[in-house]
Write a protein that binds this DNA or RNA. Sequence first.
RNA 1: GCCGAUGUAGCUCAGGGGUAGAGCGCUUCCUUGGUAAGGAAGAGGUCAUGGGUUCAAUUCCCAUCAUUGGCUCCA
Length: 647
Amino acid sequence: MIKITLPDQSVREYPEGITGYEIAKDISPRLAKEVLSITVNDQLWDITRPITSDANINLHKWEDDEGKHAFWHSSAHLLAEALQELYPGTKFGIGPAIENGFYYDVEPGNGAVITEADLPKIEKKMLELARQKNEYNRREVPKNEALSFFNHDPYKVELIGELEDGTISFYQQGEFTDLCRGPHLPNTEPIKAIKVLSLAGAYWRGDEKRKQLTRIYGITFPKQKMLEEYLIQLEEAQKRDHRKIGKELDLFTFSQKVGQGLPLWMPKGAKLRERLETFLKKVQVKYGYEPVITPHIGQKELYITSGHYAKYGADSFQPINTPAEGEEFLLKPMNCPHHCEIYKARPRSYRDLPIRFAEFGTVYRYEQSGELHGLTRVRGFTQDDAHIFCRPDQLKDEFKKVIDIIFYIFKALDFKDYIAQISLRDPENTEKYIGSDENWEKAENAIIEACSERRLNTVIEKGEAAFYGPKLDFMVKDALGRKWQLGTIQVDYNLPERFELEYIGQDNSAHRPIMIHRAPFGSMERFVAVLIEHTAGKFPLWLTPEQAVVLPISEKFNDYAKKVQKQLENSEVRAILDDRNEKIGRKIRDNELKRIPYLLIVGEKESENGEVSVRKQGEGDQGTMKIDQFASFINDQVDQMLQEIDE
RNA sequence: GCCGAUGUAGCUCAGGGGUAGAGCGCUUCCUUGGUAAGGAAGAGGUCAUGGGUUCAAUUCCCAUCAUUGGCUCCA
């Protein structure tokens, strides 16, 4: 008999060789029906695998990530089996489960090209195979046998080559056998609903120098209804896409003539962005930032000094040549070199530090064409940039203050789901980075300590640092679940070195300051994009380009409506007028769709009493108010919103 | 940059080797109204651009540009 410890620490005795499935059955028949995978002593296993000694176990159902993982991983094998049947000779790369579903990277047999039109066919074949209820059979295989089994598939051979003999396992279901660690479902029966979603090229092992395989994405569910719900949810997410809402609400546009990735802000979008900028400027004044302004171009030499030219010169917009011999300027890809020169403009004392230069600086980067994406990835964008020059003893404190600003902004905009990522350098590949080991270590520790002192939950990613220093990034997901970096704080020992920045210390000798680059929004473009998707275009009252629209019942009341609008404008309420020759129902509908927070209906009654009839977006009629009463109602709400954040 | 898809009116999209369609929007007129679409008429397109095949190309083929789903990259 062996002792099995469940997550609640209760212990049960079972005969040696009992499986997860049998334990589940012993606990409850219902659990047995739902269990998908099991953790045995911190290792994920199949529920059909015999347990031969005392163990801590945890059974996983669909509701658990581990359960879904096994389900989708098994589905990936099913996809592979379908492809093997439909495209004989197909070579298989990797086929993992992902956050939503799974994919398989393949090289279709006989040079076949799989297109979107083939997806339904693949889906049908998968369903057909799933209904056969084939078992997933695990088998451990010696390395030489594994190699000879896959001798026709160079990708599998490469993967096997990296594994240690004795740790290699195969899974076979139906006619398909795959190299795989597992775990898998006992059989294909639970896979009831299947959607093959999309198709993409993906470099083998993520290396752009290697062959590009065909990646097929799919998702499966134990119930048809769950699939339907998922697809509806996907559609809903697409409705929040900032590119779509941006067009609907006239916030921004692009022009082929102006150029790829160069956003054009329309009046309403510009208003929105301006308010965000004003908001941050106010915060920055409180935190001791000083505004600076620098030009959009700089001599090439400036970027040679900063090191950016060596690193990115080839992938940048090419230098601007002027009539004077030998003059070359670059569109600025970064604001920091300019700010360094401001720092250098006069001698600095240790008493002056920290110095914080802030600028909404527009920069230009030649992003690869395939990377451009709405407002989230563009070639010309404005950073809410600032550079803090400080003494080593001030670094951690300054870093913490920047975290506080980011917290403040995220709170103001109700961003709750963010990931704070600390990016360190790749310890195996230190030649990619510039700067001394000692400085790197100091900077990395300062970040880690600052985060822990601010009790920030972080994930640490090695190898994700910028080439000049480690950083803390705040990532937020868009409507389709893609992660984007917004706020960023970066420690830099390198630029002060390259620009020979100094301050005179207490000891009357020169010292090198440390620089912090920081941008709480990241870029205005990207931030607004994510904001649009999070709010579905229903911006908070303090931020929205138009807070109210006045709707006269008929043309007879246009004059009164105009007066209302003017009076509101004078009271600093952003109000517009809809005096189109339309019935009131129509005006209400159109302006609701424009997501204007308050609709003010004015007709005979209102004009006689100096009132407006207030209708709140999405909520309906709120009764009447005097004009100035409504103005203070709006202004009070805005003040309250901004004050609450202050506390 | 790479692989796949897409490009038709301001927007959303249908169509298809023989001179181009819908709905919404826009303009004008009628209507003057009370909380999510009033009615009529009209304007608007080199079917992304450039080549090729064909008696004939918006439609088929090639290239380019742009958009798009991924991959790679991201100071």
